[in-house]
Simulated assay, not measured.
Amino acid sequence: MPTQPIDTLDGTLVLRLAYDGAGFSGFAEQPGQRTVAGETRRALETFLRRSIDLTCAGRTDAGVHARAQYVSVPLTADELAITRSRWMRALSALLPDDVAAGEVFHAAPGFSARFDARARTYTYRIGTGEARPLLCREYAWWHRTPLDIAAMEEASRCLVGEHDFKSFCKVASAVGKPTCRNVHAVGFSTETQLGEELLAFTITGNAFLHSMVRTIVGSLVEVGSGRRDPAWMAEALAACDRRAAGPTAPARGLCFMSVTYDEGVLTVCS
């Protein structure tokens, strides 16, 4: 498909997507792999009948889910006139069953779902105890043994603020790249999903490194299991060495929950 000349692009389409990550090799496009970006691009290019530039708020790994991933695409003036109902019908028809468009927005020319994001929130869900989560088994890590939530809460406090999170990052992705991030908030809660009780760890930050949330969760579970003292979490953080932290938690328990943008930047498509 021909690429649309940049001087004809008059605004930005922003989609809020949800997806079940089980059937994808992550969000980012990869040759020969089924990805969320690849399926989204195919749907949009089929509808618009041209090639597009697609930007996401945050890449998710293989098996990670999303309730509110945001993607941005520059549009022409004629394309900006497409109604919300037409977008929703088209996307429902063209996207696969494991991806859904939840809302359609407009933004100014040059808006980027990635670079204009102020914060991102992830939640990791864990099932504990002898009973395996059944209806939620694809969206939670079954840990089998009880966890000391108070110890995990104590250990997690050191994460808040701006730190070098190299200890909680996939080694290869940290080479030659900055690894400082600002975590705004962390917290634990219990949820009942489809009648099954889960422990939910939620973390909000300006941005996240590759596998950062899952490695944090794996490390917190080391504390909750009694294998590590809560003070060990701060020691692992300060080490700036992946070997100092705990294992990486399974992908299926992680969900990209929301993105924060400046008020008024996004306008719901009419």
Rank of each mutant, 00 (worst) to 15 (best):
L135N: 01
W142M: 10
H143G: 14
H143D: 05
P146M: 10
I149V: 15
A151Q: 09
A151M: 07
E154H: 04
S156L: 06
S156M: 10
R157G: 02
C158A: 15
L159K: 05
K166G: 04
S167I: 07
K170W: 11
K170A: 12
A172N: 08
S173K: 14
K177Q: 12
T179I: 12
T179D: 02
C180E: 15
R181N: 04
N182W: 03
V183G: 00
H184P: 00
V186D: 01
G187I: 06
F188G: 08
S189C: 12
S189T: 14
E191K: 06
E196N: 07
L198G: 02
T202I: 05
I203F: 10
F208C: 02
L209Y: 01
S211C: 09
M212Q: 15
M212V: 12
T215A: 14
I216S: 01
L220T: 00
E222A: 12
R228A: 12
D229M: 07
P230W: 06
P230N: 04
M233H: 12
M233C: 07
A236C: 03
L237W: 08
A238P: 05
R242P: 08
G246V: 05
G246H: 10
P247T: 13
P247E: 08
A249Y: 08
P250K: 00
A251L: 07
R252H: 14
G253D: 01
L254F: 04
C255Q: 02
C255E: 09
F256E: 00
